[in-house]
């Protein structure tokens, strides 16, 4: 950022023509509107009937603090709502918290609906109360990562950055 700014001033300093100043201003604006690069956008929400959203809110906030744009969908989202949100928001990932025990059904359905919408490249991950023995089945159906209870928000942020920040989306 600093280097680019210097660069820009140099250009301005050398040039005496207004158009190049305008061009330079335009690129500065683009850079600023973009905030210095494309942001990681992802959906974070809860599916299932339980009403505990404390954990998922903490995760949403932590990811925002890590510089991401987190579209928080709230509680009791149907798989359809989640998949449609991922589509409309052009999200690179979907993180779901599921405490109700319905994780196998919900993740399978969300993955299906994402794929149906041509969103095969959207990374699906989650956490909540998910027994370790279910994790292989979840991974097989296309859940990229399952976080156990007590995972630190830093670990989740690192994972998301590593997985979604690669510039493929």
């Amino acid at each position: 950022m600093v280097a680019r700014r210097n660069n820009k001033s140099n250009n301005l300093g050398k040039s005496s023509s207004a158009p190049s100043a305008v061009r330079s201003a335009a690129s500065a604006l683009k850079r600023d509107a973009d905030g210095g690069g494309r942001r990681i956008r992802l959906i974070v929400g809860k599916s299932g009937l339980d009403g505990h959203d404390r954990g998922v809110k903490i995760v949403a906030r932590a990811l925002a603090e890590a510089g991401m744009e987190v579209i928080y969908t709230g509680l009791r989202q149907t798989p359809e709502q989640i998949a449609e949100a991922a589509l409309q928001e052009d999200a690179a990932g979907v993180g779901l918290s599921i405490l109700s025990g319905a994780h196998l059904t919900i993740f399978r359905r969300v993955r299906e609906l994402l794929d149906e919408r041509g969103l095969g490249d959207v990374v699906l991950f989650g956490g909540g109360i998910i027994p370790a023995e279910d994790v292989p089945a979840l991974q097989k159906m296309g859940v990229d990562r399952v976080f156990g209870p007590g995972t630190s928000t830093a670990e989740i942020a690192d994972y998301v950055r590593g997985r979604l920040g690669g510039g493929t989306k």
């Binding site: 942001r39 949403a60 906030r61 925002a64 510089g67 991401m68 744009e69 987190v70 928080y72 709230g74």
Partner: peptide
């Protein structure tokens, strides 16, 4: 941080 929680959905 440059991040945001977009909660209107």
């Amino acid at each position: 941080t440059g991040g945001a929680v977009l909660g209107d959905r």
